[in-house]
Every structure is written in structure tokens, then in C-alpha cells.
Design a protein around this nucleic acid. Structure first.
Lengths: 329, 329
DNA sequence: TTGTATGCGTTATCAG
DNA sequence: CTGATAACGCATACAA
């Protein structure tokens, strides 16, 4: 019988079962225990409704069965998807997730890494933007989309291949003059390679292209100006656009509508990420799809395999093309 | 100097500062401590890079500064939004979140509640569907959208008022024959009142309406049949639809397109939830917007105020109408 | 005000 | 194979 209202402990179970405390621990942890002892203990556990106290275990073993996920937010649907699949993978393996939102704040990225260590998490998965971020060496750490060093595994999709694929697709669909549009930080990370792949393919195939990259601080209206500059007699000189993310693609398409340019009749548009409306229905735009499920699986299995000596330092996963109404066909 | 590689403990700090262990604890917890002692301790803390170990504190205080959030997933954008705002509110208050995905699995809902207790979380916020769920009395518990009993606070938006608002809006926009469409469980919960509010308003205003509710197991195609049955000479007899969720509204609109019914010219559609594309851009459909931010704030402040004796048992927050392209104007 | 000592629930190390 | 017991890092009641 537990004393008062507080939850029963191993000592209570031991008393109830008439065995030693250590024996209870062994049963709970599935270690070798004599059959009749095991049964007595299990009966007592059921009797008292005992469940082990993770705080005690955490203190003793210095591990919490928890992984910290550091990510800007969960409003952006790509991040939501990532959070979802990573948490599912963790749940499968009986791990918990400690979710940390940075809102793109560089100081919070640092803070959360410290906080994660203080909370004795068993590892960290991080999607960050701070160019000066220092990755601790004494805790399993996996990054998404950013390569720091060979000792910090990075998981990303094949951004270069995706850019290449977009160019090839536009060409196949009959485009003869294209542009790549992107917005974003000056930070060099894996997604930066989307442009590189696109450019490489265009050069190789002899497909004309222009680049329009908005740096931090420049207003969105710069895109409007850029597009206007390429309109003659109400006709856009581009017939194919590859855009850094689906989100930006969608905004650009709104812009084109306002300018009376039809998509995909006048210009075909391919985005990047693979965002679906309501998370699981149609693709919002034609797009290069990131394999989020596989990315999540790779992150989790990598961060949990600290002891496995040989972890690749860059895990690159294949992308695919999906039709979303903004290309022909 | 810490022994070996493991993180410094309070004992290390005490030794370094030449004070007692208890004094370090008091400094760390911001209690009254003599000025020169405080300074010595803080210097030692900086010196060693000490951060307190939350496992030790958790074991000692039997509290973890963690709240469990039980929710189906984070793919559905409404859930993503909820997770986002709840986590933000928790971060503000220096609490962590333990995220639990049920995927609508009733047994997992139960499991997670037990697991949360085992992990000594300080409270639970839950959005569940299991009709037989038993809410533990010995832990602060807040539910979203479902009322269990006066002792379990429930946070929800004004679903009845939202239904009423939808009817009024459709009437204002000139509709003369309407229908309410919904899909979903047989479970009675707060969102069930969307229909009630709609019906009440229609009756009061003398606006004709029909109800079409899909029960569990019925295929989506039932909606197609329902709509077909109401088409004569290619013309839909309804000119206004109120639909249980934005997600369903969007699917219905796809259906209408296939049937060559134009939205909003032939029929105006209002959904419920307030989902925006990419989480923060345009509304996907015209809709009754749930005040997610306020819901999150209410959940968190309620679950954290266990000691405050008087918590209302139902917190009902006001909704608003937003134009999203599927109504006139 | 500061120091000392105990115990939170668990795992792990020893003896038996 | 089992029982007893010592940590783990911290907060706190009590003694100084």
C-alpha cells in the first residue's frame, strides 16, 4: 500500500511482493530473474499500478530518452512535416521529443543548445541559420540542411539534383527561356545548391536562364520590378520559372496573376519542397519534393547511433518531381 | 576543476568557490544570499560553465517544468498552429513541451496519459477523441474542444457563435437556400455545436437549409451523390454552403469544380478553422476563424494555475469571419 | 545568513 | 540468482 497519495515506488513494489528492491528493478528492466520472483513482482506491479519514475532513472543513468529538435517554428508547413515525421520516428523507438522554436533568432539557437545539454537530452537535431553556431562535441548532434564539419552529420535532400531536375523538366515541357528566383539569407547551406544544379543543367542543355536572388532586407517588391522589366507588350519573356521554395513560388504566382500573366499557359512554374494543401492533399504548386519521411528517419537513426563509429558526415536523399497545376500536363 | 569529462555539479562549484553546497543551490535558485558569497559563487559558475542538472532537480522536486501536449498529429495545419502557439506560450514561461501524437488512435490517447504521469510532467493539454477517456484527477489537465466534467477545464472557441455567424453571413451575401456539410465521428464535442448555431440562425432568419453529415465509415463519395441529387439542369439548388472544417470545404470545392459549379458565382462556401496557405498567407477558403493564439494562451495559463482555486470549467473564445475567395465580396 | 546532512527513485556494484 | 547498499545531483529542513 502506497503511503498517502504519491505514486508507488520500487520500494513499495518490493515490499508488496516480498522481494528486494534490486529484484524489482531487474524485472522492470527485463533482466534475468527467476520465474517465480518475476511473477510475484509483476503481480505487485499490477496490484499497485506501478510505473517507473523517469526522473529517478534519468538522474541515475544520466540519460532521458529524449531528443531535442531545434527548428524555427511549426507554422511553415515544411517544418510541420519535419516535426511530424521526426516525432513519429522517435515515438517508434520510445524516445520523446523536446521541441524548441527559434523563430530564426540566432541567439535562441545557441540558448537552446545549452538548454538541451542542461536537460541531459540524449541528442540534438537542429535546423539552424546562425552562421557562427558552435556545435558541441560531447553530445550526439545532427543538422538538417547545413554542413558544419565531418564530425557533425548533416542530413539533406539532394538539392543539387533537384535543381537539375527542375531545369530538365522545364526543358521537357517546352520552355525556351527560364529564370531562377530565390529569396533568403546570405548563409551558404545545402539548399543553396538548388541554384547550382539548375544552372549546371541549363548550361549543359543550352537552356537560357537568368538568376534573381533577393538578399536579406530587400523588399519583396523587387520581384515585381524584376518581372515587370521582362514584360514586353504584356508578354513575359520567360516561359519557365524555377523558384527556391514552394512558398515563394506561390507568392510569385499571385504576383503573376495580378500582372495578367497566366500560369501555366504563359509561364510554367516549378517550386521546391513538396508542400501539399492541408498537409496531405494536392500539391500547392508543381514542385521538387523533398523526401521528408526519409529525412526524418535518417536524422533519428543517426542521432541515436552515437556509439556506431562510422556515421557518414553528409546524408543526401533523393528528391522527385510532382505535378501541382503550375506546369503543363 | 571537474573530474574527467562529465559536467560540473553544484559540489564542484561549491569547492571552487569555497562555500557550501547549499549556498550554491540558493544562488542558483535566486534566494537570499550574502553579497560576497553570491559573487564568489557566480564567478565559480562562470568559471566552470556550470548549468544545473534538471534530472536532479526533477527528482528532488517531483516536477519537470514540462507539459505534455496530446494531439493527433502536426500534418493538419490547424493542429500545427495549435502546437506552435502552445509551445510559444510554454517557452515564454520557461516550460518545455512533450509532444505526443495519437494519430486518432484511442488506445494511444490512454497510453500517453499514463506515460505523461510516469514522466512527472506538470500538466497535460489534450485534444482527444476517445469517448471513454478517463481523465486523471491528480494532475492538472486541460482539454481542447471537449467537455468532460466541471473539474476538467475545457478550452474551445465559440463554435455555436461561429455557426450562427456563418448563417448570418450567407444571408447577408444574398443566399436563399443553404446546406451544412460535415464529416466526422459520432463523438459529441464542442465543434458539434457549429451545426447547432447554424441551424438556430437559419431558423430564426427563415433561411432554408439542409443538413448532410457523413458518419464514420461512409465514403466521401456520399457528398458527391448528395450534391448531384440537388442539381437540376446543371444548376445547384443551393447558393450557400457552410462546411464543418476548412479542409472539408476545400475538398467539396474541388468536387464542385468537377461538376462545373462555380464558386462563389453559383454557390458561396464558408468553412471553419481559419487555415491559411503556408500557415501565414491567404485564407484557403472564406471561413470562421478560430482564435488559435488565444486558445493556446488559455490552455497554458489554465494548466499552469493548478493552485488557483477558481478555474472556469469551460473557456469559450470568440471567433471571427474572414474572406478567402469562396464568397462574394 | 550559511553549513550540514538527508532523501527523492533509480541503477549498479558487491556479497551472499 | 538475489539481497543489501551506495551513489546520481539537487533542494531543503535543521543546526550552527
Amino acid at each position: 500500500m502506497a503511503k498517502g497519495k504519491s505514486a508507488p515506488t520500487m520500494a513499495d513494489v518490493a515490499r508488496e511482493a516480498g522481494v528486494a528492491l534490486g529484484t524489482v528493478s531487474r524485472v522492470v528492466n527485463g533482466e534475468q530473474v527467476g520465474e517465480e520472483y518475476r511473477e510475484k513482482v509483476q503481480a505487485a506491479i499490477r496490484q499497485l499500478g506501478y510505473r517507473y519514475n523517469s526522473s529517478g532513472r534519468a538522474l541515475r543513468t544520466d540519460s532521458t530518452n529524449t531528443i531535442a529538435l531545434i527548428i524555427p517554428n511549426t507554422i511553415n508547413p515544411y517544418f510541420s512535416l519535419l516535426v511530424h515525421h521526426i516525432n513519429c520516428e522517435l515515438e517508434k523507438r520510445n524516445y520523446k521529443m523536446m521541441l524548441c522554436f527559434t523563430e530564426y533568432d540566432r541567439s535562441r539557437e545557441i540558448e537552446f543548445i545549452q538548454m538541451a545539454q542542461q536537460n541531459r537530452v540524449d541528442g540534438v537535431i537542429a535546423l539552424t541559420y546562425n552562421p557562427n553556431l558552435v556545435i558541441p562535441e560531447d553530445i550526439p548532434f545532427v543538422t538538417i540542411d547545413r554542413f558544419f564539419s565531418v564530425s557533425v552529420p548533416c542530413v539533406a535532400s539532394d538539392n543539387f539534383g533537384g535543381g537539375w531536375m527542375a531545369a530538365k523538366k522545364l526543358k521537357e515541357l517546352g520552355c525556351t527561356n527560364t529564370a531562377f528566383l530565390r529569396i533568403g539569407s546570405t548563409l551558404t547551406h545545402e539548399p543553396s545548391k538548388r541554384k547550382d544544379g539548375f544552372v549546371s543543367a541549363c548550361v549543359e542543355m543550352g537552356l537560357p536562364f537568368e538568376i534573381m536572388a533577393l538578399e536579406d532586407g530587400q523588399p519583396f517588391s523587387e520581384f515585381e520590378r524584376f518581372l515587370s522589366d521582362h514584360i514586353k507588350d504584356g508578354k513575359l519573356s520567360f516561359d519557365g520559372l524555377f523558384i527556391g521554395t514552394d512558398s515563394l513560388a506561390w507568392r510569385i504566382i499571385q504576383l503573376l496573376k495580378k500582372m495578367n500573366i497566366r500560369v501555366p499557359e504563359d509561364v510554367q512554374v516549378i517550386g521546391f519542397d513538396g508542400i501539399r494543401i492541408f498537409g496531405d492533399q494536392d500539391y500547392v504548386v508543381s514542385t521538387i519534393v523533398q523526401p521528408v519521411q526519409e529525412i526524418a528517419e535518417a536524422c533519428v537513426s543517426t542521432v541515436l547511433s552515437r556509439h556506431l563509429s562510422s556515421v557518414p558526415s553528409l546524408i543526401c536523399l533523393p528528391v522527385s518531381y510532382a505535378y501541382g497545376g503550375t506546369t503543363k500536363e
